[in-house]
Amino acid sequence: MHLDDVLTELVEHSGDRLLRVAYQLTHDPATAQDLVQEALLRVYGSVRRRGLVPEDWYAYLRRAVINEYVRTRRLRSSTEVVTDVVPERPTAGCPEDRTADQAELWAALGALSERQRAVLVLRYYEGLADHEIASLLGCREASVRSLAKRGLAAMRPLVTAVSAGEDRT
């Protein structure tokens, strides 16, 4: 099979998965699509220039998506204020709150730093082990554990409040 056909097929068969990971990272559909598109073009250009074909295209592209995400977020970080403080806690057990709770959890994930969020997405969405995440992010395993710990610590007050306020009627 021709290399170009392989890549076209990859978009059709692994594109959805990559886009979902990108969406978990960015929380924005258009940005997620940009991210995957950018990563796809960078990887493909690089592969063509070097003539190398990765054994695992998905893992290769996922790495590119993660790197692109961290890189672009870092570029924008001078204008963004990243906080790990959850803004508000739910107070009531009304069924409407359950949706609100979910929305707040999602928002809290979005408020983490790009590396904390990347670690949590790779760990809890992609199901990767810490040593795999370390390899992917190019850092030590201890750094992954530290990022995860700080990310979870930022989320914990919110989830405690959610559990306490659940409506079980």
Binding site: H13, D16, L19, H27, A32, Y124
Partner: peptide
């Protein structure tokens, strides 16, 4: 909870 919230947003991602 984090896994559930992430999975719950799958359908909002763009598709291939």
């Amino acid at each position: 909870d984090i896994s559930r919230v992430m999975a719950g947003h799958d359908d909002q991602a763009p598709n291939a």
